[in-house]
Design a protein around this nucleic acid. Sequence first.
RNA 1: GGACCGGUAGUUCAGUUCUGGUUAGAACGCCGCCCUGUCACGGCGGAGGUCGCGGGUUCGAGCCCCGUCCGGUCCGCCA
Length: 587
Amino acid sequence: MERTQIKNISNKEIDSSFLISGWVEKVRDHGGVIFLDIRDASGLMQVVVEPDDKDLFKKSESIRMSYVLEVTGILRKRPKGTINESLASGELELVSKEIDILSKSKPLPFQLDEHAKVGEEVRLKYRYLDLRRPEMQSNLKIRSQVNHIVRSHLIEDEFIEIETPMMARATPEGARDFLVPSRLYNQKFYALTQSPQLFKQMLMIGGFEKYFQIVRCFRDEDTRKDRQPEFTQLDIELSFISEEEILKISESLIKRIFFETLNIEFDDFQRIKYQEAIKDYGSDKPDLRNPLKLVDVKDIFENSSFKVFADPAKNEKARIVALKIEQEISRNKIDEYTKFVGNFGAKGLAYIKVNDSTDLDNGLQSPILKFLSKEEISSLVERLELSSGDTVFFGADHRNVVNDSMGSLREKLGEDLNLIDKEAFKFGWITDFPLFEEDIQGNLSPSHHPFTASQGGLKELKRDPANAVAKAYDLILNGSEIGGGSLRINSLDEQLEVLSILGIDKKEADEKFGFFLEALSYGCPPHGGIAFGLDRLIMLLCKQESIRDVIAFPKTQSATCLLSDAPSLIDQDQLDMLSIKVLEEDK
RNA sequence: GGACCGGUAGUUCAGUUCUGGUUAGAACGCCGCCCUGUCACGGCGGAGGUCGCGGGUUCGAGCCCCGUCCGGUCCGCCA
C-alpha cells in the first residue's frame, strides 16, 4: 500500500484503509487502549491501538515518543464526545491493523511540545530535533515561500537570475573578509564575497539590464540577533533606471511578499529624508511604530548659564534634544536610563519631571532646575507642550553622541512603556543619505559603499565632499534596515574622485580594483539597484526575535556551529598542502 | 577589544546577595506497575546531580574571592 500524507486523509474516505508514516509525537497508554499521535510534515493523526489483536497490542506497548512508525489502519470517525476541536484531523482517527517500527529513538534531550521552554544552546546542539517543532517547520516553509514569490515576481518582470562567484579577490574597505587559501598559488588567498556588488555592476556593463540573485554573503564581523557571519541577500540591479523606479519595483515586490504570505495589504510606504529621520528619531532606521520624537531645543540655551547645555549650544557640531514622555518615570528607571545612554557615550541624562505644569516655580522637579533661567524653562514648556505628569529627558553633546544615545533611548522607552504595536508592520523609505559619514575625529567613510553616485555630481563632490548627498536609499521595517541600495557611479572620473576622498589614490585603486575601473571605461550604462537582507525580512515576517530562528543551521553569537562544532582545528597534512603555518596562540 | 545577564537532574527552573553549616529541591521527561476514550490522559512507586571548569578564602563553599570556558543581549565593528 502507498503512503498517504496525513493532510490528504479527508472525511470522505471513512472506512477505507490507509498507510501513514511519521514520528510518534505522544503516547497515551490507557492499559486497555493505546493512543499514538503520529506526525508527518503535513499534520497530526491519532492512531488507536485496540486490545483485540494481542500481538499488535503487545508490540504497541513498547512504542515510545519519537519512534518512526509506518501504520496501516482503517480510517473512522471518532466516537461522539471524543472529538478534538483543536486538531485539523480532530474528528478522525486511524484504527491500526499493522504497525512497523521503522526506527527507534532514545528519549530526546529536550521536549518538543509547545509547552516546554528550551534554551537556545540545546536547541542548536540538536538542531535536527529542534527543526521538527511546528514553529521551525513553519518559519522555514515561509522562507521557502518568500524565495518562490521573489523568483516568480522578478522573472515575470523579465529579470534574469545570475549567479556570481563566492570566491573572489579581497577588496579594501568594508567588512573583514573571510579568506580561502589557494592551494595552487601558495601565499595567495581568495576572499568570500561580502556582497556581489562589483559583479552585479559588471553584469550591467555586460549588458544584462535586469539582474537578481538570492545570494549568500560573508562578513567576518561580530554578530547580533539580526546579524551573523553568513547571511542571505536578495540582490537586484538594473540599467537605465531612476531611483524612483527602483523604489517602486522594490515596494511592489515587498507588498506582494506580505500579501501572499500573511494576506496583509499596505498603503504606499512612507518616505523620509535622511536628515528628517535623524532630526526626529536620531536614527536612520527608526521604528515607525514608536510615536516618540526628539525635539531640538539647542537655540533655547544659546545664552544659558548651565554649562552642560551652553557649551553644546555654541558648538556647531553639537546637538541638544528633548524627549518628552507623557508618563511619570521612577528615579530607579531614570538611573537605569542614565546608565543606558552611557553606553553610547553620553556623559549623563538630564531630566525634568513635570508635577504641575500650571506652576512653573514649584511644579517642576529636576536636579538641573537651579541652573536654568525662567525664560529657558518657559520656552521649554511651550515648545514641548508640557503638561502635568510628563517627564522630559535631555541629550546635549556632539551630534553623533546625541543621535545615538537619545535615538536608542527613544526605542527603549517605546519598548518599556509599551508604546509599540507589536502586531503592526511599519515600512519606510529613508532617502537622500549623505555620501560620506564623518566620525567624531572628522574622518570620512562611505555611508553606503564607495560606488554610490552623488546627487550633485563630480563638481560638488570636489567642492564639499562632507556634505555631498548620495543617490542612496534604505528600506526600513519596524526599526530594522531590511534593504538598501543606490544609483551607482558610471563614470571613471567620479569613481576615482570618491576613492581619493576615501584616501585611496590612483595607484592603490588600480592595484585593488583596477579590473573594475577598467570595466567602467568601456561604456557603462547608468545603473543602480538594491539588496535586501532576506534573513531579517523573514525574521520580521515570522515575528521572530532572532534571525537564528529563520535559518536552518545558524551560528552562535561567537560565530560557531554548536551542531557540527565548526570552526575546527585542521590536520597538519591539510595545512602543509596550503603552505600554511599556524601560530601556537594568539599574541 | 569592552559592558551586562545567565550556566544547579535529560529539560525548564528554585536554592546563590543581605545571611557559607547535617541528606541540594520542584515540575516536565525517563523507568516499573496499574488503568478501554485520551489528546499537556490519570494513579502509585522509582532512578537520575563532576552545582560549567580551575584555583583561592574557610573547620566547612552550589553560595564568598580570583581566573577561565560556554550561551545570550548590547557597545565598538558591520563600506
